[in-house]
Write a protein that binds this DNA or RNA. Structure first.
Lengths: 237, 237
DNA sequence: GTATTTGAAATCATATACGATCTCGCGGAG
DNA sequence: CTCCGCGAGATCGTATATGATTTCAAATAC
C-alpha cells in the first residue's frame, strides 16, 4: 500500500512551525518586537495553534522570542544590557570552543579558513556588510566544526542565533573594526598552526569577541543614544 | 466580585506540570530511564496531556528528559561521554561566574561561605553524602548569587540540574576528593579576599570543578566498568 | 478637555476527540 | 526451537471547541 497518510515529510508540524518562524526571524521578515500570533501563523502554515505554540515555546527557551501569559509572543527585543550579557557569554564559549577544537584542526582547515579571511580582506575597501558577516560566520565555523564537546558548540550556536536577531547591529558597520577583526583572525590561525597552549588560544579568541563587543557598544553609544523599538499593537477589526 | 474562577494560584497548568516533573526528577522519584507518559502524568495532576507535553518539551530543552516521536519521553540517561561534556561546560561557566561575581562579594558573604565550608569540614570524618552535596551547592551559590550576567548564571543552574539527574555519582562518594574540595573552597575564598585578578580566580574555580570531574571519572572507571541502565518498557494491560 | 468605566473583540490556555504510529506478545512457518 | 508477520493496545500528535484573560476604544462622568 503506497498510501501516504500526510506525513510524507517525516517532519512534525511543531517542528515545521519552529523552523518556519526561525527562518523568518533570521531573514528579518519578523523583526524584533513583531507580534507572533498563534492562530495567524497556524493558518498561514495550515496547522492549528497547538503546534505553533510549542514551537514558540522552544524559541522562547532559546531566547529568540519573549512570551507572556494571555498576552502573546513577540520577537525578542534585545536592549543594551541583554546584548552585553549575550556577547559576554558568547565570548567565553567561543573562546573555549576554539581552544578545544584546535587539536583537531588540520592544515586543510587552516587553508580554507585563510581563504575565507582573504575574501574578507578583499571586502575591506568596498564593504558589503551582509556578505562580510556571512564570511565571518564561515570563518569561525571552520574553527569550531571540530569541537569535541557538542554542548559548548550548541551554546555558540545559540549565541549566534540571538545575535542574528539584531543583525543590523552587525560589527562590520563599525568603522575600523572590520580591519582589526581580519587581523585577529590571521593571528588566531597562526596560534593554531604554532600549536599554542590551549589557554593562550582561548584568551585570544575570547578577546576577539570582546573587542567586537566593545567597538560596537562605543559606536552605538555615539550614534543611537536611545533607540526603543515600538511594540506592534494588537490587531483590531 | 470575589468570584475566583479556578486560577487562584496564578500558575499555568503547563508551568505546574513542569515544576512537578522537575521536582520528581530532583528527588529521584523519577530516576534516569523512567518513562514519562503524558496521559498518566496529566491524570495524576488533574490536567490534560497538552500542558504536560509542553512541560516535557521544556525539560527536554534543558537536557533533563529525552523525547522521541510517537514513542514518548523518559528521564535522561547520562552516560559517560555526555557526563563529561556537561562537566566540562560547567567548569567553564562556573569559572566565569565566580570571576564575574567576585567584585560584588562582600565580607559578609565570605563569612557565610566560610561557615558553610566549616560545616563541610565537620562532615569529613563522618560523611553524609547527601548533606555534603547540599552544603557544596550552598557554598557555590553564595559565590555566584552576585553574578552580574544572568545568562551565565542560568547556564550554571542548567548544569547543576543535569548533574542532579545523576546525583548518585555525587563527588562526595569519591574517597579523598571531599577533603581536597573543601581545601580548594578555602583557597577560592582567599583569592576573592585578596582581590586577585579575574583570570586567576576564573582558572582556580575551573580547576576546582575539573578536579572533581577527574576524580569521579577515575573512581567510576575502577568501580563500575560498564553500567548500562535498563530502559523501562511500555506498560501493557 | 481629561480621566474613568465598560463592553466587545482578540488572543491565549487547555480540555476533548480522533487519527497516526509505535510496541509487544502471540501464533504459525521453517 | 527460532524467526517472522500480524494485530491489539498503548501512546503520541494535532485539530477543534470552549473558557479565561487581556486589550483597546468608545462612551460617560467630571
Amino acid at each position: 500500500m503506497a498510501e501516504v497518510t500526510g506525513q510524507a515529510t517525516g517532519l512534525s508540524k511543531s517542528q515545521l512551525s519552529y523552523q518556519w518562524i526561525k527562518a523568518r526571524i533570521s531573514d528579518s521578515t519578523f523583526t524584533p518586537g513583531y507580534r507572533l500570533v498563534l492562530g495567524a501563523i497556524g493558518k498561514e502554515l495550515g496547522v492549528s495553534a497547538v503546534p505553533v505554540r510549542e514551537a514558540i515555546r522552544r524559541l522562547e527557551a532559546e531566547g529568540l522570542v519573549t512570551f507572556e501569559r494571555n498576552v502573546g509572543a513577540q520577537v525578542a527585543m534585545i536592549e543594551e544590557t541583554e546584548y552585553l550579557y549575550t556577547m559576554q557569554t558568547l565570548s567565553v564559549v567561543e573562546g573555549v570552543a576554539t581552544a578545544l577544537s584546535a587539536p583537531f584542526i588540520t592544515g586543510a582547515d587552516i587553508a580554507r579558513a585563510r581563504t575565507v579571511n582573504q575574501e574578507m580582506i578583499a571586502f575591506l575597501e568596498d564593504l558589503n556588510p551582509h556578505r562580510f558577516t556571512e564570511l565571518n560566520l564561515e570563518f569561525h565555523s571552520i574553527l569550531f566544526e571540530n569541537c569535541p564537546n557538542p554542548h559548548i558548540l550548541d551554546l555558540v550556536h545559540r549565541g549566534w542565533n540571538r545575535m542574528q536577531v539584531l543583525r543590523d547591529s552587525s560589527f562590520s558597520f563599525v568603522p575600523g573594526r572590520a580591519r582589526e577583526s581580519v587581523a585577529e583572525h590571521e593571528n588566531l590561525l597562526q596560534l593554531i598552526e604554532a600549536e599554542s597552549p590551549a589557554l593562550t588560544l582561548e584568551l585570544a579568541a575570547r578577546a576577539h569577541r570582546t573587542g567586537t563587543m566593545d567597538a560596537l557598544l562605543a559606536y552605538q553609544k555615539s550614534h543611537h543614544p536611545h533607540q526603543t523599538p515600538e511594540s506592534s499593537p494588537r490587531k483590531r477589526s
